[in-house]
């Protein structure tokens, strides 16, 4: 019940005053409620819990994090601090 996963908003509509959306989780689609994310738009990624979108995924932050990991790896190689044994 807690394993929220990111999906992409493909459609948004109004159901008797409540904002709803169709969200694509890599092929599986679900109807979710957008009551708590009034500003999201079609195309954005969002994390869903119990049929509700609770946070939108910040694509820039995701990219920055991945870039930082990569840098971390390069830095380790530069400084020769990487431990060979991890490959065992």
């Amino acid at each position: 019940m807690c394993l929220g996963i990111p999906g992409r908003i493909t459609e948004i509509w109004d159901d008797r005053g409540t904002r709803m959306a169709l969200v694509d989780f890599g092929g599986v689609t679900r109807t979710v409620c957008l009551a708590y994310l009034p500003d999201v738009t079609v195309g954005q990624y969002t994390i869903i819990h119990a049929g509700f979108a609770l946070t939108s995924v910040d694509e820039d932050a995701a990219r920055q994090t991945l870039a930082m990991f990569r840098e971390l790896g390069l830095l380790d190689e530069e400084l020769g601090t990487a431990k060979a044994e991890v490959d065992r």
Binding site: R8, V57, A62, F69, R70, L72, G73, A82, V86
Partner: peptide, 23 residues
């Protein structure tokens, strides 16, 4: 799927493991 597979990259995982082991 976006922001799922990227955060399972084995090569990046190895770098992070290295960083933790070095610290």
């Amino acid at each position: 799927m976006k922001y799922l597979t990227e955060f399972r990259d084995p090569e990046l995982a190895r770098w992070l493991l290295d960083a933790i082991a070095a610290t």
